[in-house]
């Protein structure tokens, strides 16, 4: 069972993503509500894929990408970007994130990202 980390300061965004993941397949889902927590949860659980919000309190998504990439150079990080964060999104992708998904998240787009990056897992 693939392990997925969802990091977003909004409980609503986390629960919507969790619901969509359960519609798509069987995943072990971990949640974090800020950047610092995301790094901690990532190191502890080494998820197969991490969805990171860009704008977060404590530590923003761009810094989190860099720290996770230092810890795990093969990390599969997807940025979850709200409208209006294009400059930050660019920085996150340059920092090592492999793709992005626009918020509010579309289930079909989420499915596409999972299929593309996790294959049959």
């Amino acid at each position: 069972m693939a392990k997925i980390l969802i990091c977003d300061d909004s409980i609503l965004a986390r629960s919507q993503m969790r619901d969509m993941l359960s519609n798509i397949g069987d995943f072990e889902v971990f949640e974090a509500k800020n950047g610092a927590e995301a790094i901690e949860v990532y190191k502890e659980n080494k998820p197969d894929m991490a969805f990171l919000d860009i704008v977060m309190p404590v530590k923003n998504g761009i810094d989190v990408v860099k720290e996770i990439m230092e810890f795990d150079k093969d990390a599969k990080i997807i940025m979850a970007s709200s409208l209006g964060n294009n400059s930050n999104l660019k920085a996150a992708l340059e920092g090592g994130a492999i793709d992005f998904i626009q918020k509010p998240v579309d289930e079909e787009r989420l499915r596409e990202i999972l299929n593309k990056n996790l294959g049959g897992r």
């Binding site: 609503l12 409208l83 209006g84």
Partner: peptide, 20 residues
């Protein structure tokens, strides 16, 4: 917290659309 997050989501979405 879901109510609070919903209101936040509205503001964030609106501000995002404005930025775009």
């Amino acid at each position: 917290e879901y109510i609070e997050a919903s209101v936040e989501d509205f503001l964030n979405l609106h501000n995002g659309l404005f930025s775009v």
